[in-house]
Each structure stands twice: as structure tokens, then as C-alpha cells.
Amino acid sequence: MTAWSKIMSLIQDYQQIILLLHEKPDGDCLGSALALGLYLQGEGFQPLIYHPEKINREFSFLPGQDLIKYYTKQVLPEKPVIAVDCAAENRLLYTLPQNVPIINIDHHQSNTFFGDYNLVEPEAAAAGEIIFRLLQNAQKSISAEIATCLYVAVATDTGYFRHSSTTAETFFIAGKLLNYGAAVDLIREHLFEKRPFKELKIIKIALDKLQFAQEKRIVWTALSYEDLAANGLLNIDTEKIISLLRSVAGVQVALVFKELEPRKIKVSLRGKQGYDVNLLAQHFNGGGHAQAAGCSLEGNLKESVNLVIKKTADLLEKL
């Protein structure tokens, strides 16, 4: 039985299917969920992508936006759930329903296998790769709209094919998606030629607060709630910042600390070959991939930074 056949066997008796995103969904998470939702819609289901937070408008150009529903109740209704690109149940922002199928589709090494059916492939460069292979085994062909969503999923999670997770399979899938009609001109326009001014503003603040350790093998910046709130930057993504820091010659580990609320801190971690930041993230109850991971902390920003940087240095010394 193929993975697609298994999923169909679990949801075939239901009309509405809930698709879940992780907190602060990125291009892979959102693109993969939209692609799967559009395909399920074409199969006669009523997919609902639930999320309790405002979603980054960076990806508002993607097809299928009408599938996204702002759902604020903590407990989900008794309908099958497909979690996409979510490593652990605590990243879903909801309490999962009982007595219905829970399907977990993900590519993180740290996945906790919380589903009744777990399609977890850590070797995949993106959740979009898994969704692509899944739909390849389905009956209908992939539409141009679905291809556009999946291309964004794969491209963004591989750093536009720059990360070490990129494989020959990744390029093969990207080529197939182009053949299916992925709108690369539209993608380029929105992701590279329509950047918000606030993104430059947050980069400036981040660079002003740049610090190094371990002979510049570690670089980090810490963005306080006060600075972010004062400049209207709380909802601005920091992916460009972490990529910029990681690109510095000699740096092995880059970190961005973002205080989303007073004493609630999101930490983004990026490493180069030879340093597994997933191990560092797991030490603080987070997770991810070898070269890209994250965690959340509660406490004083300065103290939290010192704690994580010390642990980063300790692990770096063991290499």
C-alpha cells in the first residue's frame, strides 16, 4: 500500500479534513499545506487549514488562500487532522481531537511521531518533497497551482537550493514542478522583488546589535521586545537575518534571539557543515535539522542569550 493509499483509507469516510501548520509557518509549511489542501479539494474533500495566528503576508500570493481559516478555539473539532511540517505536537498550537485519525507528515530529525500514521522522512530536504512524492502516487496530475505552492515549499526550505540538504532529488523535483507549470516569475516577483521596507529596518537593528564569540566562530544578535514593538517589527520574519549571519566567513554557528513577547524568546539556529545545531536546540527542548533548528525560551533576554551562547561554545569546543 502506498503512503497516499494509506492516507486515503484513513480519511475516506470524512468530508472535512483539518490541515495544521506549525507556529510562525514558513514557506515550506504553508506551501506544502496549501498544495495538499488544493489536491484534497480536487478529490472532493473540504480541507480546512486552521491557524490561530496571523500568517506572514509574504506568502499571500500563493494559490489556495481561501482554504486558510482563522480558528481561535484551543480544542479542535472531531475531524481528521493532517499536520504538515510539524516536528512535535506542542508546535501545533491546538489540542488534537480524540477518536479521529491524526496524520503526521514531516521531515525533521526531531519528529516525535505523534500521529496515528507518521509519514516522516528526515532525508527529505523539505516537507514539500514528501508532499510531491505523495501526490505523484495519487490518481490525478499535479496542477500548476499546486506546483507553484510546492516549488515555494522546496525552494525556501533549501535556502533557494543553497543548503547542504539540497540533493539531486531536490533538483529533479524542482524540474518536474516547472514542467507542471509552477509560476516562477510570480514567485520571483513576490519573494525577491517586493520586499517590505520593514525587513530592511529589522536587518539594520539586528546588525547594530551583532556580537561574536569563540574567535568569531559564533555570531549572534538579540532583538528585544521593546525594540521590535517600538518599530512595528514583531511580525517581521528574521530568516534573512539568520542567513546573512551564517554567510560570514569563519562563522560556524549563527543565532538570532527574537523576544516575541516580554520574556518569551524564539531562538533561530543555523550551522555550517560539521556542527549539528539540532543537538543544541534539543538541549533547550527545541529541534529541527542538523544545519537549521530552533527553540523557545522564557526568561530575561540577556540571561537567555548568555545561557545559549555558553552552551553553543561548549559544544563547539567538543568538535
Rank of each mutant, 00 (worst) to 15 (best):
K73L: 12
E215S: 10
A155M: 06
I17D: 01
H22S: 05
Y180W: 05
A230G: 09
K194R: 10
L244K: 14
V120G: 01
M8F: 12
I131W: 13
K264W: 01
A144H: 03
Y50H: 14
Y160G: 01
I146T: 15
F212S: 05
K79F: 10
E199F: 12
H108P: 12
E53R: 08
E129A: 05
A3L: 11
K266P: 03
H289E: 09
E23W: 13
L76F: 14
E193V: 11
V152D: 01
L62A: 02
G294W: 08
I265W: 05
H22R: 11
A144K: 11
I11L: 11
A213M: 11
E58F: 07
C29W: 12
G294F: 03
V100S: 04
S143E: 04
K216G: 10
K69W: 09
S143Q: 05
Y151W: 14
G271M: 09
S5F: 14
E239G: 02
A88Y: 08
A83K: 03
F212H: 04
L280T: 00
N278C: 03
L135M: 14
I202G: 08
G115I: 06
T2D: 15
L233D: 10
L228C: 14
A174M: 15
E298H: 04
N56T: 10
G232K: 13
I241M: 04
T112Y: 14
T170A: 08
L319Y: 07
S9R: 07
N99A: 04
D314R: 08
E129W: 15
A229E: 05
L92N: 00
L260C: 11
I205Q: 12
G31P: 11
Q15D: 15
G299P: 09
I49V: 06
E43Y: 01
D314N: 12
N137Y: 10
L10P: 00
Q291I: 08
Q46Y: 01
F132D: 02
E226N: 11
Y117E: 02
Q139D: 07
V251P: 11
L40W: 08
G288W: 00
K302L: 05
A124P: 05
S268I: 07
A254C: 10
G44D: 00
P196K: 13
F197P: 00
R195S: 12
G44F: 00
L316H: 02
F171E: 03
P196I: 07
V100T: 15
G42N: 00
W220D: 01
A87F: 03
K272A: 12
E303H: 03
M8E: 08
G286T: 08
L40T: 14
L260S: 06
G294R: 03
G159H: 02
R270E: 10
Q16D: 13
S143G: 12
K272M: 14
S110K: 08
G42S: 00
F212G: 03
F197W: 09
S110L: 04
G299T: 05
G128I: 08
A153Q: 10
R162A: 12
G44N: 00
V248H: 09
K204G: 12
Q15G: 05
A126Y: 01
K302A: 10
I203N: 11
A88K: 13
R270L: 07
D185Y: 06
Y50Q: 15
S110N: 12
H163C: 06
G274N: 04
R133F: 12
Y117M: 08
G159T: 04
I218R: 02
D208F: 15
D66S: 06
E239M: 06
R217M: 11
